[in-house]
């Protein structure tokens, strides 16, 4: 399997997960979206030296993976491209902040070391909570929730179409690279002088395909807005985000109060 095909396959598996009939998948997307944003804001607002507070915040990703019946390993694997960037954020803190914070035996732990770990964990949790959201909610549902929050329809459509066209572009890229490789079997990768033509062709073909998809949408009455069936709220739809908002909100206030 080519690497592009591999990525497409991964995207398809993620879509499979979104469509599963599990309790967390069936929850109203508005509650899940609201709480995910709330959680990220709370985690980010914790003091950079409050390592204990940040560790407490692991309660949501841990519960989310268990209750959402998601594989932690797969989640981390799928987020592998973002995680290094997130981890990189606080990497220089130990060099800039050398104030001793505590001592473990003869080893002095500096404020910079603590803030580095704290920042890394904060980023890690933000990525995990986003993953919990996207692995249990389809892009259409997320867009529906965004519309309920009165996010302008043009922005929501851009999100939806980028997601759709991403697949279209990846398929075209896969076709072009496969066709190239089949006619250059002994060659490793794609020769630099072919890149211009291939990328140009890829963009033109993707635009053609995207144009056809858009025409198909227009012909079925699309007028700039994607309509999702209205969902009735169940008790679980309210209790899930409310419960978690109270837990995480209380934790944040408590940690801020302690200073």
């Amino acid at each position: 399997m080519s690497s592009i095909e591999d990525r497409l396959h991964e995207l398809n598996k993620l879509q499979n997960e979104q469509q599963r009939s599990r309790r967390m998948n069936d929850l109203h997307p508005l509650g899940k979206l609201f709480f995910s944003v709330f959680y990220i804001v709370c985690v980010m607002s914790l003091n950079k030296y409050d390592l204990t507070g940040v560790i407490y915040m692991a309660v949501y990703p841990a519960a989310g993976f268990v209750l959402g019946e998601l594989s932690f390993r797969t989640g981390v694997y799928r987020m592998r491209l973002i995680l290094p960037l997130v981890v990189f954020v606080g990497i220089f803190n130990p060099f800039f902040d050398r104030t001793p914070a505590m001592q473990i035996g003869s080893f002095i732990v500096t404020g910079g070391m603590i803030s580095m770990v704290t920042l890394m964990l904060k980023g890690f949790y933000a990525v995990l909570s986003s993953y919990i959201l996207i692995a249990t909610t389809s892009i259409e549902e997320i867009c529906y929730a965004l519309r309920l929050l009165h996010v302008p329809k043009i922005l929501v459509m851009v999100v939806l179409l980028i997601y759709r066209y991403f697949g279209v572009m990846a398929q075209e890229a896969d076709r072009i690279t496969t066709a190239y490789k089949l006619r250059a079997p002994s060659q490793k990768g794609i020769r630099y002088n072919a890149w211009g033509t291939l990328v140009g062709g890829w963009l033109l073909r993707s635009m053609d395909r995207a144009g056809a998809v858009y025409e198909s949408m227009l012909l079925r009455g699309f007028r700039g807005e994607y309509y999702y069936p209205k969902r009735k709220l169940t008790a679980a739809d309210v209790l899930w985000p409310l419960g978690w908002t109270l837990i995480i909100g209380a934790l944040t206030i408590w940690r801020s109060w302690r200073g």
């Binding site: 879509q15 469509q19 259409e140 998809v213 949408m217 079925r220 009455g221 699309f222 309509y227 069936p229």
Partner: peptide, 17 residues
């Protein structure tokens, strides 16, 4: 272009509200 056949088939009728 939508995730499932059901959603895709429903796309047109939903656009006509």
């Amino acid at each position: 272009f939508l995730s499932t056949v059901e959603e895709d088939v429903a796309f047109g009728p939903r656009n006509y509200r």
